[in-house]
Computed example of a mutant assay.
Amino acid sequence: MSDTKAIRIGTAPDSWGVWYPEHPRQIPWQRFLDEVQKAGYTWIELGPYGYLPTDPAQLRDELDARGLKVSAGTVFTGFHKGDEQWQRAWDQAVQVAGLTAAVGGEHIVVIPDMWRSDLDGTAVEPRTLTPEQWDKLAAGQERLGKALLEEYGVKQQFHSHADSHVGTYTEVVRLLDLTDPQYLNLCLDTGHFAYYGGDNLRLIGERPGRIGYLHLKQIDPDYRFEVLKNDIPFADSASRVMVEPPAGEPQFAPIIEAVAALDPEIFAIVEQDMPGVDIDLPLGIATRTHQHIFSCTRAARAN
């Protein structure tokens, strides 16, 4: 019998093109849950709050009927902008963390505000933060992580992101150095980190205690440079730069195995950004991705 450590693999509404609570082109939530089950996954994220049912009893019934479980919810923050951002973040946390904890979820993935609008691609802020803004960002995230843990028993996992102020290797490490690992660790998104040239395995090796969660995605390494050179907004390039595995980078197996060796209770959630996708396409991609992951490594498990 193998003693290989394995981490839990799941998926998310994002892999079905869901970016908003409601949108006429998005897949209905009932069909999403049905297709997650058909594709072979057990674990999911909530996605944008309001997409899945927000009544805990109803959501539990829908999940139980399909043998599904929730790993995390998602909150968006902009603490670098000032103290007034606390209430915005906490209002979301009360809803998202409350629902996540009520259905057994363990984590809150926190995504920072973008410096560029995801609606029209215009720059709404400078691309880099001042030292004072870095301090505000770190203090706000740390306060949020402490409150999430104390009030709801869930852990904050910070998600670096394309077109945000925390995207490069240096920026990610700077945030880690400014925060307490008791209250903030990383949702290491393999695609977003690679988008700015980040080496996922290097970060895992250098900061093993700060890896709390994974998002699995791959990028087209050639098109990534076209995007960066020509300053194309991520929202406009997402569905092309984030490609179906195993066609892109980084390879999943070494990352999954490295993280499994750290902690087999960490989640690895497939998140292939496909905004506006034809709703008939994701099931096939999700199924093939599931098959790829479980065929390329023994360090993956369904439950």
Rank of each mutant, 00 (worst) to 15 (best):
R8V: 07
P48K: 02
M274F: 10
M274N: 12
R66C: 15
G140P: 15
G50C: 03
P221D: 04
E35R: 14
A97E: 04
S164N: 06
D189Y: 08
D120H: 08
S164I: 01
F32W: 06
S2K: 13
D177H: 13
Q272S: 03
W90G: 09
G198Q: 03
A286R: 09
K146P: 02
F79N: 03
A139L: 08
D83H: 06
V96T: 03
R210N: 12
I219E: 01
A93R: 04
I293L: 14
A89L: 07
K155I: 05
I219L: 02
D278Q: 10
L262Q: 14
L228M: 04
T4Q: 06
H192P: 01
V18F: 06
Q92N: 07
S15Y: 14
V259S: 10
K38V: 15
R127C: 07
G10P: 03
W29M: 05
E125R: 14
V94P: 01
A260P: 02
T122Q: 06
D55F: 13
A162G: 00
Q37R: 15
A302S: 14
D135F: 00
V96E: 02
E271M: 15
Q251Y: 08
T190G: 02
T54P: 05
D220W: 00
L228P: 00
G73P: 06
D14A: 05
L148E: 02
L188C: 13
S237G: 01
R66E: 14
Q92H: 08
T11N: 11
L283E: 07
D61N: 10
P21R: 05
F225Y: 05
L33C: 15
A39I: 04
R240K: 11
K5D: 07
P181Q: 12
C296G: 01
V18I: 15
D55V: 15
K229L: 00
A6K: 11
W86Y: 15
V173H: 12
K155V: 02
E35M: 11
L52H: 04
T77F: 02
E265D: 11
Q182E: 14
T287A: 08
W86C: 13
W16L: 07
H165V: 12
L46Y: 07
T128R: 13
V36S: 12
K146R: 14
E265P: 03
K136N: 02
D220K: 01
G73W: 09
T170D: 15
L52W: 00
V18L: 10
S239W: 03
L184C: 12
R288G: 05
D113L: 02
R301N: 06
M114D: 03
A194R: 05
I204P: 10
G40I: 10
V241N: 00
R224Q: 00
